[in-house]
Design a protein around this nucleic acid. Structure first.
Lengths: 218, 218, 218, 218
DNA sequence: AATGAATGAGCCTTCATTCAT
DNA sequence: GATGAATGAAGGCTCATTCAT
């Protein structure tokens, strides 16, 4: 009994893993059920048997991705209650960069989400609710601490976008960067990039914070 | 006389325009020759007649896009020889944001390029050589002027990426942003965003420049 | 048990039979996958599923044809070890004529080979290696026995070609013959033709053999 | 005036020549109007303009071929009124072999006819009436002279077929021959082949003639 | 529960032909 | 008279899906 269940869950699980890889690499349209099945060492009908159709498989993959990522990378990864806002920001950036750039591990989770962000399907809402919303919320708190709790909302949003944009850029433009500057994103490089983005952002926020405080006073 | 030319070039031109829209919206794989032909009010065989095949049409669209964009938005758009580096940076950011975000005009050019950047085809090299290379080069000069002509190369690159990342973020994450913050990117909003990115970046660069100068002195 | 196998092999087999007919009648280019599928009572995608593509189906048909023909018509069909060379030659001619002309059975095998001989594809090598080579080899032995074991090689080849040519003519020119002489190739006619070719060839070979023996003596 | 006519007839003539080559090489189905037009340095619409459609062009090519061949190779080529039947037969065979095998000249005429014989179109009747009928008729006379004027009709026909078959074999099986025996058909080889066929046939006919005369006497 | 076979819609492309000048 | 553009039917093939076991 357990054997069959195991076999069955095994196939299901292998399909999700394989589909994750393939969807992340080729996109929803570019991925074929045949390739996914082959990568998962499963029958071609297995996808429809286990998930109904290709689209449902995609949602399942994304859902699986969300819970997996939420477990592995809590938003406050590596910070203690006593950490300064600067430390929190650095940890946030570092964590995001590693998730998005490190290709030494099977990181199709982040790459798949990047795809979903750029070209949303019906699953975007789930992604926002479970991952992106909390992520942006956490970053909002950190940025507010850096500026001032009474900071102008628009300014805070803009700062968040500036930080997120810097991080995601390295993923979205990775092909151009590697063609233009022959750069590969090994762990040390990622480490230095995260330091740069942290400094760049903190310098900027301090500057803007002063302006904001002034204008707020007026 | 004009009639024949017009008729003949007309179909070809209509195909390019239609293909631009469809490729930008659905990607190369997702786009179908049938839809493109229909949008262009052309026969389905017209694509093959004028361009040989779908791939060649795609290249032609991109090439057309390049020259069109290069004409409309020269890298130093709106600056005079006497402009300060800050003014140049602002102009650069503003121009980039408008190209990428303004949906009041048929802006498939920029959207198509964003696709090509995220998921390159064989045409990426052309795009880099004709557009992205010069763009990054121009920005490099401006950033160097802001920091110091002898600035550390890695620092300069990182700053460029930070600026580009902030701008492109609004395109790549537009769906998420509009869902999370119900923001639409009208002209005034874009104007304010560009001011923000300019200030954010200049504040940061000054900060980093001081650090860099110090370390250089050591 | 038998049911599943039967159903499954059935479609594949039906496709091969139907493709044989259609290829033999219309040639590789003239045949359409749609017509083959229809003749085989199969879905149009079945060809792709079972054989990959049209070309691979063609090879499979020809390969199937080879083994089928080799089983039914061994080169020494109907002769005993004690048969005289004349009897062997008659049996050879008779067998070849029946294979090529008898339209009372589905003889697309021979007609398909005739096509392949006249307008070869990449599959010609297989045909030569498995069928034509042995066939010509067997005929060579018989002709050598009729002339002399030390017969001039060129003479032997020429005699083989003369014999083969006489036989194949009735296939290649069948339309012209039936228009000019209103001849249909029923079994008795084929029987008489084979007798004619046998006599014609033996008379000729004896004549030439005498000449050859003389010149060899000189 | 003459210029335009010349130009016009020129195009028409070039189309026929080009179509002859292409039809002979690829067959009716395999040939494309585009390739023919290109080979003839003509516009793609020229075929339909001058001939109505592809099929009509084919007929025109064949008709042209007939008259051209009839002029160049009269059935009694190279024989005098005093020639013996043996000399006539040799001349006939030699002429046929050269027409069919000699690839040093543009001999698409014969190759096209060979195609038409193997896979007739509606134009076969013309071919038979104008070329093949007279050809077979001439050969009938020669063979009758060799046997006896009162020879059995069936025997005469069979002998004709045996002779024609030997000749055409070298064309129809040329690919197999060159693969099996690495033979190329240069002028000297053709010369020797025609001598062989002549001897082979005359030897055979004499033999059969004796038999026939005997049976006729009975 | 799980599979290999079968399906039909839809893809890009090629073709002979016709149209408008 | 002659041409380049445009047409639509049909080609081979791929795909996600369903069927029959």
């Amino acid at each position: 009994m357990e054997g069959t269940d195991k076999k069955c869950n095994d196939t299901r699980e292998r399909l999700i893993q394989a589909a994750g890889e393939v969807f992340a690499q080729r996109g929803f349209k570019g991925a074929t059920v045949r390739e996914i099945s082959r990568c998962a060492n499963a029958n071609i009908a297995a996808v429809n048997y286990h998930f109904g159709d290709k689209e449902e498989l995609y949602y399942e993959v994304l859902k699986n991705s969300l819970s997996s990522v939420m477990k592995k990378y809590p938003p406050d990864l590596g910070v203690t209650p006593e950490s300064t806002p600067e430390e929190r920001l650095h940890a946030f950036i570092r964590s995001l960069l590693f998730r998005v750039l490190d290709e030494s591990r099977p990181t199709w989770h982040a790459r798949l989400m990047a795809r979903e962000i750029a070209e949303p399907t019906a699953a975007l809402d789930q992604l926002i609710e479970n991952i992106l919303g909390p992520l942006y919320g956490y970053l909002t708190v950190v940025v507010k601490q850096l500026i001032s709790d009474e900071a102008n909302d628009e300014l805070v949003h803009n700062c968040i976008f500036s930080i997120m944009g810097q991080c995601l850029f390295y993923h979205n433009s990775r092909h151009v960067i590697s063609k233009l500057y022959h750069k590969k994103f090994g762990p040390e490089v990622i480490e230095r990039l995260s330091t740069h983005i942290m400094r760049f952002s903190i310098g900027a926020i301090r500057d803007l914070g002063i302006l904001d405080t002034k204008s707020a006073k007026v």
